[in-house]
Amino acid sequence: MLDTILLTCPHCGETFETVADPSAGDAEYVEDCYVCCRPITVRLRVGGDGELDGYDADRDD
């Protein structure tokens, strides 16, 4: 199941909506900002119940 999350770009400060897939457990991936196109490292934290517990978005540089 996909969850909708809000990311705030650490480069330009804009907030945008994207989807996250917690079904594989904790994950880290790079997604480009929809506004400034710069890379963002997204880290998902998934609980033992398979639900998304939280996420972080940091600069990828």
Rank of each mutant, 00 (worst) to 15 (best):
M1E: 11
L2I: 13
T4S: 15
T4L: 12
T4G: 15
T4H: 11
I5M: 11
I5T: 14
L6A: 15
L6D: 13
L7W: 06
L7C: 12
L7Q: 15
L7A: 15
T8G: 02
C9Q: 10
C9H: 07
P10I: 01
H11N: 10
H11W: 15
H11Q: 03
C12G: 04
E14R: 13
F16T: 01
F16S: 14
F16W: 07
E17H: 04
E17F: 00
T18E: 08
T18Q: 07
T18R: 12
V19M: 10
V19N: 14
D21V: 01
D21W: 03
D21N: 15
P22C: 05
P22W: 07
P22V: 02
S23I: 01
S23K: 12
S23N: 09
G25H: 05
D26H: 08
A27N: 04
A27P: 01
A27V: 00
A27Y: 01
A27H: 03
A27K: 00
V30M: 04
E31F: 00
E31A: 01
E31W: 01
D32W: 01
D32A: 08
C33R: 10
Y34S: 12
Y34P: 10
V35C: 03
C36F: 03
C37A: 11
C37F: 09
R38D: 04
R38Q: 12
P39Q: 06
I40F: 04
I40R: 05
V42F: 02
R43C: 04
R43G: 09
R43A: 06
L44W: 08
L44I: 02
L44F: 08
G47M: 03
G48D: 13
G48P: 09
G48S: 14
D49W: 02
D49R: 06
D49G: 12
D49C: 05
G50N: 13
G50F: 07
G50P: 08
G50T: 09
G50H: 12
G50W: 09
E51V: 07
E51A: 15
E51K: 14
G54C: 13
Y55K: 13
Y55C: 06
Y55M: 10
Y55G: 08
D56Q: 12
D56A: 15
D60P: 00
